[in-house]
C-alpha cells in the first residue's frame, strides 16, 4: 500500500494528466450527433492504437538475444500498427460518405 501511495506521489504529474484528460475526453464529444456515433467510435478506436508508441519502445529496447521478448514485441508492433492503420482507413472510408456534393447546393 505504502509503495502504491509513493508511486502516485512520485508520478503525480501523470496522475494530473490522467484526471484532466478524462474531462477533456468527455467535453470534446459531448455534443456529437447520432449520425457520427459509428465514425467517432471508429476514430477513437484508431487513436487507441497510440499504444504503438509503447510497442516500438518495447521492441526497441529488447536485446537481440532475447528471442521470446523479440517475438512478443514484434507481434505487439504488428497488431498495434494494424489497429492504427486499419482504424484510420476505415474511419476515413465511413466519413468519405459525408462529403457534401457540390451539385446538391
Amino acid at each position: 500500500m505504502e509503495q502504491i501511495i509513493q508511486y502516485i506521489s512520485v508520478n503525480q504529474q501523470e496522475f494530473y494528466v490522467f484526471i484532466l484528460a478524462v474531462f477533456v475526453g468527455i467535453e470534446v464529444i459531448s455534443k456529437v450527433p447520432t449520425v457520427l456515433h459509428t465514425p467517432l467510435m471508429s476514430g477513437s478506436n484508431a487513436l487507441s492504437g497510440v499504444v504503438i508508441v509503447g510497442s516500438i519502445l518495447v521492441l526497441g529496447k529488447t536485446s537481440p538475444e532475447n528471442y521470446l521478448a523479440l517475438g512478443l514485441g514484434f507481434l505487439a508492433v504488428l497488431l498495434a500498427t494494424l489497429n492504427v492503420v486499419g482504424g484510420f482507413a476505415v474511419t476515413n472510408r465511413m466519413l468519405e460518405m459525408f462529403k457534401k456534393k457540390p451539385a446538391k447546393k
Partner: peptide
C-alpha cells in the same frame, strides 16, 4: 511515463465511456 500514450488513451477511454 509517456504522455502521448497516457493522454491519447484516456481521451479514448473517457470518450468511449460517454459514448
Amino acid at each position: 511515463n509517456n504522455k502521448v500514450m497516457l493522454m491519447g488513451g484516456i481521451l479514448v477511454g473517457s470518450a468511449g465511456l460517454l459514448l
